[in-house]
Amino acid sequence: MRLDVVLRVGVKLIIPFMLVFGLYVQLHGDYGPGGGFQAGVIVAGAIITYALIFGIEEAQRVAPRKLVEFLVPLGVLIYAGTGVIGLLSGQNFLDYSVLAAHAPAGRERGILLVEAGVLVTVASTMIALFYAFSERGR
């Protein structure tokens, strides 16, 4: 794929910032706007931009399809596992107050874990959707 030099260099410059911004949105979601859904879409957007400019093979070296398809159920399992911890500790499903000594701190930690699960599922699902559509085209 011989494409414009401006596009290639520009995208190379932008993508690290997109990924860092995705992590910022994810981890700062407790204090500002953000959370797992937004961060997942931004991370997926970074990978999709890379695939659009450099071709799908290059993108699959960064995020192999096997890995992406493994991450889709992994995110759901992180979410459900966080719930099951509460269940095993004698509380209700998805009751996070057992994750730390004090209930509010535990709930904050639970929110972080759950958001991580959401991030993994949403990002990998979006990338997998893009791979599915673009591989169909050839």
Binding site: G35, F37, G40, V41, T125, M126, L129, A132, F133, R136
Partner: peptide, 20 residues
């Protein structure tokens, strides 16, 4: 609505897959 947007794009993608 936050969750509905993400679910919306996933279901639209499913629809597009069926269309193709």
């Amino acid at each position: 609505i936050l969750t509905a947007i993400v679910v919306g794009v996933a279901t639209i993608a499913l629809g597009l897959a069926i269309v193709s």
